[in-house]
Nucleic acid binder design. Structure first.
Lengths: 208, 208
DNA sequence: TAATTACGAAACGATACGTATCGTATCATA
DNA sequence: TATGATACGATACGTATCGTTTCGTAATTA
């Protein structure tokens, strides 16, 4: 994670200002809260940070990458890796934490804005997959793998599909906002999936 | 569906030109294919359709609503309502049709562009929910309700959550493009969900 | 000390938006 | 048949935002 912005190239010349870097990220954070992703402009970030616009572009190529760096720090810090002893408990705790983190929050609105932006900017999309989707999934994946080790679910379980079911449903409600991200929703999602995985154990009792 | 664009107000004055209306939609269709949602401009649509820019704005308030009308006709015509006799068969046929419709197609790219736009434009979001999400879900809902009537799954099944699981996972892969929308994916999604719903019948055998 | 690079400030060209205005065309109504 | 209302195509316009460039100055290395 450390450096998403262009790293200060060691060498000759005046070095990149860490103050400017910090001030830009802080101004971004503030303006995301005040205006949201869509109405945030690089121009205003520069003003707020008392920084030339060119300095921002020297560190980040696009608004998307800047907001992304400001966002991920915040987001990843709030995604726990629960260990309750059961798959149901882990998935439910994880999904509840995700909902708490995004529902009605600046983080949630920024997440939505970034996902929208990712669909319009292929370079940001790559950054997004490599430095957000993949790391978050790697962490979530552990919950499933532990359940497999406990022989709670089949070793043939498709881990990726399981994650897509749990969080795909959640992202779906976040992006389509057709129905609320209620706790009833979280429970129902997890219960159905865990039930489905358990039934696969019964059908193919090949786990030792 | 019929009229998403501002309907020609019956009354005095010169009526809206149906030719212009058709030409605009056709030019939009072409340019979506050539340029994609992001790079489609109203200016070019006007040129291509041999129409004044103002005429477009007279019919549709934004680029989003214009593309939306061009899109939905295409999309909804290709979403079948399967009736295979089993929930598994229906869901799988439906999900496969969805994947065929969006994977590597102009329709799919436009769908992605529209979902992104919906996150930036609250008015389009309302249109999207009322004239896309709700109708599509209403159709898909029938598959679940028929399974309930057949006593294949519990009458207590949360229909909305079930739909969010099936298509939420699919939209997730479409938007995050972390993994392919393979047929293996479709089967695994449906099997897990159907297994989960069936296990709920066993746990609460209250269906008559 | 000279070369090099970043700094803040500001002007710039480019693009696309959505609106306004022009003169013309087509309708309902009187 | 005449009048008023509205849409038409064409085009000019002002605004917003972008990302780049230029300026003189500051910081660092060779």
């Amino acid at each position: 994670m450390a450096e998403l912005s262009d790293p200060p190239v060691a060498g000759r010349g005046r070095p990149r200002s860490k103050n400017a870097h910090r001030a830009i990220l802080e101004a971004t954070r503030q303006l995301l809260e005040e205006r949201g992703f869509v109405d945030l402009t690089i121009e205003e970030v520069a003003q707020r940070a008392s920084v030339g616009k060119a300095t921002i572009y020297r560190h980040w190529p696009t608004k998307g990458t800047l907001v992304f760096e400001s966002f991920t720090v915040q987001f990843l810090a709030q995604q726990p890796l629960p260990d309750t002893g059961s798959l149901r408990g882990d998935l439910l705790a994880s999904l509840r934490a995700w909902i708490r983190n995004v529902k009605g929050t600046v983080t949630g609105r920024t997440l939505v804005g970034l996902i929208a932006e990712v669909q319009r900017d292929p370079e940001l999309a790559e950054l997004w997959r490599d430095h957000f989707v993949v790391p978050v999934r790697a962490q979530h994946r552990l919950m499933i793998e532990r359940a497999i080790e406990r022989h709670e679910i089949s070793s043939k379980t498709d881990v990726d599909v399981t994650l897509d079911l749990v969080f795909g449903a959640a992202y779906h409600r976040l992006l389509q906002s057709h129905l609320p991200l209620s706790d009833r929703f979280a429970q129902s999602v997890v219960d159905t999936i865990v039930g489905g995985l358990a039934s696969e154990v019964e059908r193919s009792p090949t786990h030792r």
